[in-house]
Design a protein around this nucleic acid. Sequence first.
RNA 1: GCGGGGAUGCCGGAGCGGUCUAACGGGUCAGGCUUAGGACCUGAUGGCUUAGUGCCUUCCUAGGUUCGAAUCCUAGUCCCCGCACCA
Length: 831
Amino acid sequence: MKKIDGAINIEEKINFSQIEKKWQKRWEEKKIFEVKENNKKKKYYVLEMFPYPSSSGLHMGHAFNYTIGDIQARFRRMSGFNVLYPMGYDAFGLPAENAAIKAGEHPLKYTENAMKNYMRQMKELGLSYDWSKLIITCYPEYYKWNQYFFLKFFEKGLVYKKKSAVNWCPKCQTVLANEQVHDGKCWRHEDTNVEIRQLEQWFIRTTKYADELLKDIEKLDWPGRIKIMQENWIGKSHGTEIDFEINKEKWKIFTTRPDTIYGVTFMVVSAQHPRLMALVTKEKKKDVEEFLRRLRGVSEKELEELEKDGVFTGSYAINPLTKEKVPVYAGNFVVADYGSGMVMAVPAHDQRDFEFAKKYKIQIKIVIHPEKGRLDKLNGAFIEPGVLVNSEKFNGIKSQDVIREITEYLTGSKLGRKVVNYKLRDWLISRQRYWGTPIPIIYCDKCGVVPVPKKDLPVKLPEKIKFGKGNPLVANKEFVNVKCPKCNGKAKRETDTMDTFFDSSWYYLRYFDNKNDKMPFDGKKAEYWMPVDQYIGGAEHATMHLIYARFFTKALRDLGFLKFDEPFNKLFNQGMLHGADGEKMSKSKGNVILPEEVSNKYGMDTARLFLISIASPDKDIAWSDHGIEGSLRLVKKIISYSGKAKFGKTNKKIEHKLNKAIKEITEDIQNYRYNFAVIKIRDLFEAIEQESEISKNDFASFIKLISPFCPHIAEELWEKLANKGFVSVADWPKADESKVDVKLEEAEKNVEKIIGDINNVLRIIKEKQGKEGSKIYLYVIPVEYGNYNVELLSKKMNKEVKMFKVNDSKKYDPENKSGKAKPGKPGIYVE
RNA sequence: GCGGGGAUGCCGGAGCGGUCUAACGGGUCAGGCUUAGGACCUGAUGGCUUAGUGCCUUCCUAGGUUCGAAUCCUAGUCCCCGCACCA
């Protein structure tokens, strides 16, 4: 065909939404994305972090996220893999409960509405999920297994209970999640300060796996920054534990600077330390309680911004090396659950200790001098390495070396030891809320803490509940009052529910066996599908979810459920889609782009194409109404072309282009360079468009190449070309490298170059001589005669073009421009 | 404070030692097509220069390494993200 001449107003002809609906329906009816285990086929598990179904529905940002995974899933499926690409809903959580409190809507109803909406929207995006694998965490069929795992962990000692601080609103009489605390006030009572209270809570012993979680990071094919974040989060540090004697009792402290031990002038114990009161003398009790009261009015957030503050406990500690007595303070800047919750303070060589000492006029004792010079007056702590002074037999030794020596000395005298410490804390899973998995524990007056027997699972959430004050489960008598499974006596149920991160820590193991009511999942199926080959999600889950899921996998391995160590081999972090104003999309900013609107205007495929061609999909991008026009043009041109294409034989040039494109696009998709793939699709299409014909088979390959990006349109064109079945499950084209011909490419570059040169000449003679050149004569060296498509050239220039060999005696060449001809560079004469 | 990532032409965004005035898209301008507009097509889009050439100036700023730097190093400025009193 010739160039697509204007006048085709395809907008009237393309009904995107009709095409989309048609294919979405057929995909669903024919179940082409449903999979089962097949040992003859290699599996590929593409997983996106499942969403919390919010009532506001999906916006274009979600479309961007899921399109990234869908393209990969479609591509792998066409490449011959048995692709598991499932979706589910992280359906428990606070917003549903908040809606219940504020609007009186039951969380279940709220959530089900939201999920219905999500599912409809996801289907409209053309995502190729296997919906038969759907999981929903708020149904007992799912959360039963949360309870099952909790009990398994309980048996293994991976679960324990201890007191911990929570946010408490005295007006609501309930515990608040961090998100419900705004500026230290309750979200519902702007005039009410949130208090910090100590409650008994359930913990998971994630720290048991701290070392393995850290060590295995190197095995992961994850973005570097996520790995670094996890490393920092786990925060392994080597140090020395030293015993100080206080009131004839041993108190351990952790330090990475044992070299400064001779400079200790006081101790600080965390204000949140569970045994703090044991250190407080009678005389100081009032002071300490006053201090604690002051702290209590402060939310956790504010706590971090406070000035160093403290109070003397009345007790003294004995330095194990110097035997000096130093005062013990309670302080707000010592973290209770890191190390031992108490530190030795060396004001001369630690900035925090220095500030504290200045404030309370405590002695500052220098024990390290710089290697050159001496310290006289300190304006701040000297924390550089140096040489020891005032340190008895360690004087004169370099501080870096003495760390080992002092530790060895302490170890020898049984006063200390080398230890490793982690920042990673045990995972607090207790939530004093309704909309979560009930913790399967019963408290019996006689038998104490009794786990619910597994045969009694699930412990179901009562449906009829009253929201008002506190956790509605507490007030629900049928739920709370039970018989003890051991002694049959009166007992009470645990009313705490689980953190929803518990649900999402193992959901990837449930998809492929989502209807199993005997076990959380079949180990054989897990063996086939796991680990996840490609996990896709936002970087905001770098620490919490991704650590918990890794922990779960390791714990389940040790419980015999799994045979591998890591759940997610590869992780891809998609960027965030911002509004047209460059701001984060949000209702309040009014910059939310809805898929429905975009779809009506441009078609979903156009939107998908646009989103992934803006930039590399791991980058943050911004929506642009102008930008999408470019994608729309391409889509329209492709549709229009396929309606007019003349099918016949493909020429060498297109064969070359096609095969090269297949090779490169395949690699680009594998490596998530979707933006590059689109550029190559454009380039290939432009070449195809210019030729008079193409073979049906080759055009079919082109359709396959676009189908992961524009699945509906690809299906439509596929069908129009009388191909069988669905292009979505057709074989991905293979590049025939023998058809790739670099020479052709060079020739093409030459054509481009010559066009540039001709235009240059035309411009110059117009400017200089005022002439409008109309005839172009080219003189090429004989071997290159076939390299130039004169017809194409003429069409492109919209001028008459004639070509001669330089040695052609009959050529027309009034100014002897043929003498200028060089290889790859014909002489030009214009008149 | 600690840790990570950035700054590219009118805009978005590639590039990450030579092939770079810098992919691709958007915008703008010129020409074509068209009754006109839209759509579509062709080309231009740092400056000067030239029958297709050549030169100069550009990739946050200032230095440096190199035969050669948008790309590597050093210092600085600004922006984003994560952790945050972790002893």
